[in-house]
Write a protein that binds this DNA or RNA. Structure first.
Lengths: 206, 206
DNA sequence: GTGTTTACTGAACGCTGTTCAGAATATCGT
DNA sequence: ACGATATTCTGAACAGCGTTCAGTAAACAC
């Protein structure tokens, strides 16, 4: 038999063609340029045909964004292999900012464009999704530092509070630089250096 | 005579009616709900008539956003009167987060929605606009602390770098909480307390 | 009151997301 | 191989969007 299998495979193939086309449009022209007709043209279908593969445009945007979280986790990989937890944490933070600035449109989709899109990918209780994995990559070195007594964090909530503090900092750098690259006149490398220095001076016991 | 004056006054009156209607729509339903037809309906004009008062929809959005920066500066007022520069700085930072969280749609328009809108209001060399004034309100206490020798900042750029570091932190808190209120599980009051503590521990000499 | 400038409207254009009846295609049972 | 059935795709349409423009209504100047 296998005909039903092949159909399922072809379906998946078209689905990923659609997502690929959507990603190209978003990356090159921004989310506002992501229209069903543009996608349909790229994959050589009629606009209506797309609805056989995705419920609506939002679902396609979510699929593109989902890939973004995978990419982010991927961008963390080299940093995660560093032995020293402090160096590891700083490298991850810098990789985060780097990812956001080199993938502005994807980052906007992940964290700025539409709360519904972000919620669809981060609000799930599943702890195995790439977004949560990326978050845990930040938590891990902090938990280790706390365990080593290098920072003050009695319980799990305190560790997460520090992780979230770092997260909002790096997210703030990316987010602000993406919306107004010129106004905070401090160059991004100086800004991140200042933020890293302040953060570690702030949390490390001495 | 005075007829030309009265006409100018009436024009200004209609303009502010349009901006008021636009602000209501944005605040209550979000930027996506801000359509020319909705605005026209609110001010009881035909959609085309609006174009006699604003060049296009973006110009109206900019006007609404501009009011947002005035409101932000206003929200800083009580904090700015505090004598102690450290207390003043922290109060301003907390007022910033408070403003963002209590005016989510306005804040989105100011710093997240469309880079063009933000740029139109912040990228001007004029140092008297409310946005820059609000920024200078953050810079001032830091400059004073540097002058007092409480923090390390030799030159003006270093002072601004520290100001920008604080700014990205509070912006990060607001921005992240607005797009995903649930995921960083740390409650916002705990998060800002952690961020403030880390920031001041990080910059204050001891 | 007449002429002229200003304010406004209705209709239209080309977009948008989405729906749906019907046509085309592929699969299945015999 | 062929008719029946399930699936896939299209064209046309709907309502709404920002914006433009010819033409009407109103206010002004003289």
């Amino acid at each position: 038999m296998g005909a039903v299998e092949r159909r399922a495979r072809q379906r998946e193939e078209v689905r990923s063609q659609i997502v690929d086309a959507a990603r190209d449009i978003v990356v090159n022209e921004g989310y506002h340029a992501l229209t069903m007709r543009r996608i349909a043209e790229a994959v050589e279908y009629s606009p209506a045909a797309i609805y056989q593969y995705f419920q609506n445009r939002d679902a396609i945007a979510v699929a593109v964004t989902s890939e973004g979280f995978v990419q982010l986790l991927h961008a963390f990989a080299p940093s995660r292999s560093l032995d020293n937890p402090r160096a590891r944490l700083e490298a991850i933070a810098r990789a985060y900012v780097d990812f956001g600035l080199t993938n502005p449109q994807t980052y906007r989709l992940m964290f700025m464009e539409d709360p519904e899109i972000t919620r669809a990918l981060l609000a799930q209780p599943d702890r195995n999704d790439p977004g949560t994995q990326a978050y845990l990559a930040i938590v891990e070195p902090i938990a280790l530092l706390a365990q080593q007594g290098a920072i003050d964090a009695r319980d799990d909530a305190s560790v997460r509070a520090i992780a979230d503090t770092l997260w909002v900092t790096v997210h703030g750098i990316v987010s602000l630089k993406l919306t107004c690259p010129t106004f905070p006149e401090t160059p991004v490398d100086v800004l991140i250096a200042s933020a890293m220095r302040t953060f570690f001076e702030g949390i490390l016991k001495r």
